[in-house]
């Protein structure tokens, strides 16, 4: 992997993270992060769609008529999302019920359109693939961190397994119901942004 490709792949994981730096794809980050499992499946789905869409658009980039390029991108994304949705319904039915409409909403996820328009349309398939996977993983990391705190503090579980021992409840510990509600995802995301900016002084605005 060349230096440039490495940058393309690793950039979105921290310095150019789609969720906490570019603040894209926030909507789904709020909706599916009450528990780890749907967050993980959503992350995998989005990463798969983004990687494939990037490669396909990149392969088609020299044929796409400029005036309908957004429509072409949307058709490719929509087709991939429907395929993912159908596969989940067939092989991961329980999870597909949890995600319900949010899989369909990957179509409107800003990260997808943003990466296709900004990167895949002007680059060869391999860098486009790395960019797609990189951004997908960057999105996934944030989703999983948010889901970790929301599930742990909101339900006392992780991936559905009880991790806070019963004895804590006996001593008066209570799950924080507020963590289950969507606004807390925004606040946790805010905290992550805070930590990241504090560690990278060059990202701080005046």
């Amino acid at each position: 992997m060349s230096e440039k490709n490495k940058e393309i792949f690793l950039g979105p994981l921290s310095k150019n993270n789609p969720v906490i730096v570019q603040v894209l794809g926030i909507c789904s980050a709020l909706a599916v992060t009450a528990q780890m499992e749907p967050a993980l499946v959503m992350s995998l789905s989005l990463t798969a769609v983004l990687a494939f869409a990037s490669v396909i658009i990149s392969l088609m980039r020299n044929t796409i008529p400029n005036r309908i390029r957004i429509i072409v991108q949307l058709v490719v994304i929509a087709a991939l999302v429907i395929i993912v949705d159908q596969i989940l319904k067939a092989f991961a039915y329980e999870v597909s019920k949890l995600l319900s409409v949010y899989v369909g909403l990957i179509i409107t996820n800003c990260i997808l359109m943003g990466r296709l328009e900004a990167f895949a349309l002007g680059n060869k398939p391999w860098p486009a693939f790395l960019d797609g996977v990189g951004n997908g993983i960057g999105y996934s990391i944030i989703l999983l961190i948010i889901a970790f705190f929301r599930e742990l503090l909101g339900s006392g579980t992780l991936f559905g397994h009880q991790v806070i021992p019963q004895i804590c409840y006996d001593w008066g510990y209570e799950n924080n119901g507020l963590m289950i509600l969507p606004p807390m995802a925004l606040i946790v995301a805010g905290c992550i942004i805070w930590v990241q900016r504090a560690k990278n002084p060059e990202m701080q605005e005046d």
Partner: peptide
């Protein structure tokens, strides 16, 4: 690639 015919055929095939 910017002609109308090309655009319409492209969209239809896709």
């Amino acid at each position: 690639r910017n002609s109308n015919v090309y655009t319409i055929v492209y969209a239809a095939v896709m």
